[in-house]
């Protein structure tokens, strides 16, 4: 007999001793327990990401202890940036929630995987947006801060008097650039680590499933 036929024959034996027999009550107690599926984890992590950026914005707002920052906040460019960031936050949250709702364990395997990956992509875009937003904000706000902050103005005036204005700007740009690169890299690394671990198996299985598919 072919080996696989032998396996099938054995597989179909409904031997009562072969599998544990769970009672009604045992199964009932199971449905009261909490799931630990990756969808739940993606949902939690994504929510944390939304919360993180929100808290970040609030903390930045609460820390306006100097007048110059209050000054910046009333500037047109700051208002525009704020409006954009909240609109985008609302958009992403809506999209994320809709994606999440389409995840259905009764879909076929391929569709289910695609929907999970879609949810994750939305969060990825959101994080990408936030990183880009930080960079753009800093670049856009920099000239404003330089012109409006008393301390910076006097430093620039001193530098100009000493003929070191070029050195000052070069150092400033380099400093800002380095800080931005460090911040973005740390956040990206963290992000890839978390999702990389969480979705490693799913990605592998999705690729395997889609192999040969046209």
């Amino acid at each position: 007999m072919d080996e696989l036929e032998l396996l099938k024959k054995d597989w179909k034996k409904e031997d009562t001793k072969r599998y544990p027999k769970l009672s009604y009550n045992q199964i009932y107690s199971m449905i009261l327990k909490k799931s630990s599926s990756i969808v739940k984890w993606i949902f939690i992590i994504s929510l944390l990401e939304f919360v993180f950026w929100l808290v970040f914005a609030i903390v930045m707002k609460a820390n306006r202890n100097s007048e110059s920052i209050a000054d910046i906040e009333s500037s047109t460019i700051f208002i525009i940036l704020s409006v954009i960031s909240y609109a985008v936050l609302a958009y992403f949250f809506y999209k994320f929630y809709m994606n999440y709702k389409t995840i259905n364990s009764t879909d076929n395997a391929s569709k289910l995987m695609e929907n999970i990956l879609k949810t994750r992509r939305t969060v990825k875009q959101y994080v990408g947006f936030n990183l880009a937003f930080i960079v753009i904000s800093v670049v856009a706000m920099l000239p404003y801060v330089l012109n409006h902050d008393e301390n910076t103005r006097s430093i620039i005036e001193n530098a100009t008097a000493n003929g070191e204005v070029f050195k000052f700007y070069a150092g400033l740009i380099l400093g800002v650039l380095i800080v931005l690169v460090i911040v973005v890299t740390i956040l990206l690394l963290f992000y890839y680590l978390v999702y990389g671990i969480l979705l490693k198996r799913l990605n592998r299985n999705y690729k395997e499933l889609k192999k040969l598919e046209v």
């Binding site: 599926s37 364990s105 799913l202």
Partner: peptide, 25 residues
């Protein structure tokens, strides 16, 4: 969401495999 139009057992195959392949950590 399970509707009687599919057999309970058939429906179980799908959810069972989906959990094992995709959802389960």
């Amino acid at each position: 969401k399970f509707r009687g139009d599919a057999k309970f057992s058939t429906w179980m195959y799908r959810v069972g495999l989906n959990t094992a392949i995709t959802l389960y950590r």
